[in-house]
């Protein structure tokens, strides 16, 4: 069975892929077909409920159109999530592959560094860092990426360790293959599936993390915003029943993270096929 058909058999994965496509379209094309003012404030039209004055999702405390805000915030959330997830994957994969393949003392030292990084809760570290550097979008990507590479590092190390002991790798070594050749032709191709699947989850987690940082008021600065920051702004009006400030960005986060998780599960079904007897 081909990979695509195997993926398609996981119905949730298909739902996830479609939801992702729709969301991406929404944040990319949305502002083009539904342009709104997202820089200058309009306090006269603040906190309007949905449907009033041509604002389908109402307005927030500064008078920004909420639907339009959702699209521009989504751009930031997705951009930071995807790039930070990618950065974490690259750094983590290299670190883990080297530790797992070289082994011995190098491995021990490298993994203690990972253990230490994991022992510091990411949110704590991120809050400290955002008091030190001004949180711009670019900075957020770098900082989040550098905080998130630890789990892929561990994962890839475990994978490399296990691939290293497979008979086909041992056979290659016994044939006189160089380390370079062994890594390039056997180790990397056989770990790439794990890397890809993990990258999906990595992006999902990065999007969540961006939201946490912004919610705690330490994220990107206004007028730039993201879904987490929208929630942070909206929480002050929660007791006045302004649900439209909370639900749309919150659901957007839930949907995109869910979708990525479903897609990741589907990809894993595809990857796991390797080596299975027909």
């Amino acid at each position: 069975m081909t990979g695509l058909r195997r993926f398609a058999r996981n119905r949730l994965a298909v739902v996830g892929a479609v939801a992702l496509a729709v969301l991406v379209l929404f944040v990319l094309v949305g502002p083009l077909v539904y342009p709104t003012e997202q820089v200058a404030t309009d306090l006269g039209a603040a906190n309007l409920p949905p449907g009033v004055d041509g604002h389908p999702l109402g307005t927030d405390a500064l008078g920004y159109d909420n639907l339009g805000r959702l699209t521009v915030a989504g751009r930031v959330s997705l951009l930071v999530g995807v790039l930070a997830g990618a950065l974490a994957t690259v750094v983590g994969t290299l670190w883990g592959a080297v530790a797992g393949y070289v082994g011995g003392v190098v491995d021990a030292v490298m993994m203690r560094v990972v253990d230490a990084g994991i022992a510091i809760p990411a949110i704590f570290l991120l809050l400290v860092l955002s008091t030190i550097v001004r949180p711009t979008v670019g900075m957020m990507i770098v900082v989040l990426g550098l905080v998130s590479w630890l789990v892929p590092a561990r994962l890839i190390r475990a994978e490399a360790l296990s691939v290293r002991t497979r008979d086909y790798v041992v056979a290659a070594r016994a044939m006189g293959a160089t380390h370079r050749r062994t890594v390039l032709t056997h180790v990397i191709p056989n770990t790439v599936g794990t890397v890809v699947v993990n990258a999906t989850f990595q992006v999902a987690d990065a999007i969540l993390l961006v939201a946490y940082i912004s919610f705690l008021g330490m994220g990107v600065q206004p007028p730039t915003t993201d879904w987490g920051a929208m929630l942070n702004d909206g929480i002050n009006y929660i007791y006045q029943g302004a649900w439209w400030l909370i639900l749309p960005p919150g659901l957007a986060i839930v949907i995109v993270v869910c979708a990525l998780n479903f897609v990741g599960d589907g990809l894993r079904d595809v990857v796991d096929v390797k080596g299975r007897t027909a």
Binding site: A88, G117, I123, Q202, D205, L208, L209
Partner: peptide, 14 residues
């Protein structure tokens, strides 16, 4: 990642 709430490994490659 050691991320705040998300514990990827978690739900998946435990």
């Amino acid at each position: 990642m050691t991320t705040a709430i998300p514990a990827r490994s978690g739900a998946v490659e435990a």
